[in-house]
């Protein structure tokens, strides 16, 4: 069977959930071979093996952390060459993070392949993998194929279930020669994001968001309390972020995170096209807004026209009571 390279997104050896989803998709196309780079790369192997990686190629060189993007492109290229030389390579799957998309694009250009970004599904077909994309703020759905070279496809979080599928996960050292460009952009400092203890926005099953209607950073505690009662991540509209009420890392929408949870609860958010672009593919959508004409109500499965300062705390209380 052909092999599929899967680029591993991990933090010091802890594999992030979207990578496990990629393994589910990769198994539809061929045998997943994972590529893990940087500090802790080898520690990813056990988790990757559990989810179907037949092989895990690792390299822990310092360059991956010290320079931007290009060293990782060099490594993926080396992996493409190694796998192609030994057998046949059906595709390269990469998570749709901002950085991984840049890596994917440069890799595709180098190996003479087409690239598809932000797929929400990948299926096998006689003519190679077919990717589904959601475009124009999710008003259209397209099916796209790579027509030249080895398909390089980036896949959005929450596009496939995480499945256990034990495989060998044999660890092999990847030998990488860095290109002249590799050291072009130095990372001179890095401040890790502080964990809030809540689920990662893009990975969460439930997202509770607040917008301009929340009216002040101090009031975001109402949104957080609802999120915590559901074990949800907290999101915000750009209006709330621009007002300085909530960090930009939590922004949902075109220039923030794109989320696709099982449940999205929008509070005091009007539903502008740029916001919808980041949440319209959520399975179930709920909104609380005092304006019955707000466009967000066109999307909802359930909407409450009312004051969020009344409705949200009551909802939180009710959830707590029911959960005991």
């Amino acid at each position: 069977m052909a092999e599929v390279l899967v680029y591993v997104d991990h933090v010091d050896g802890a594999v992030r959930k979207p990578t496990l989803e990629l393994l589910t998709l990769a198994r539809r196309i061929g045998d997943p071979v994972a590529v893990a780079l940087g500090a802790g790369a080898a520690n990813t192997a056990a988790t990757l093996a559990e989810h179907g990686a037949v092989k895990v190629l690792t390299d822990e060189a310092a360059e991956y952390a010290d320079y931007l993007v290009v060293p990782k492109v060099d490594a993926l290229q080396a992996a493409v060459e190694a796998v192609s030389a030994a057998g046949s390579l059906a595709a390269v799957l990469v998570p749709s993070s901002a950085e991984a998309k840049e890596i994917a694009a440069r890799l595709a250009l180098r190996i003479g392949s087409g690239v598809i970004t932000d797929a929400v599904d990948v299926e096998a077909d006689d003519k190679g993998p077919v990717a589904t994309q959601s475009v124009f703020a999710a008003s259209y759905s397209t099916k796209t194929r790579v027509s030249k070279g080895t398909p390089v496809i980036t896949v959005k979080p929450n596009s496939a279930p995480v499945e256990a599928a034990p495989a060998a996960g044999t660890v092999e050292a990847l030998s990488v020669t860095f290109s002249a460009q590799a050291t072009g952009t130095k990372v001179t400092g890095r401040t890790p994001r502080e964990s809030t203890g809540r689920p990662e926005l893009t990975e969460a099953a439930i997202v509770v968001s607040g917008g301009r209607g929340v009216n002040g950073s101090e009031n975001f505690s109402i949104i957080e309390a609802l999120a915590d009662s559901l074990g949800a991540a907290v999101g915000a509209s750009r209006a709330a972020v621009d007002a300085g009420w909530y960090p930009h890392t939590n922004q949902v929408g075109q220039t923030g995170k794109s989320v696709s949870p099982q449940l999205y609860i929008a509070n005091g958010i009007s539903g502008a096209i740029q916001h919808r672009a980041g949440m319209q593919t959520s399975k179930t959508i709920v909104a609380v807004n005092k304006d019955a004409e707000a466009p967000i109500f066109d999307l909802v499965d359930y909407g409450v026209v009312g004051d969020l300062f009344e409705v949200v705390p009551q909802l939180t209380e009710e959830i707590k009571t029911r959960k005991g």
Binding site: V130, V135, Y140, S141, T142, R145
Partner: peptide, 11 residues
Amino acid sequence: SWTTVDSATER
């Protein structure tokens, strides 16, 4: 183009 769009359907 190195990619081909097979179909586009309005959701």
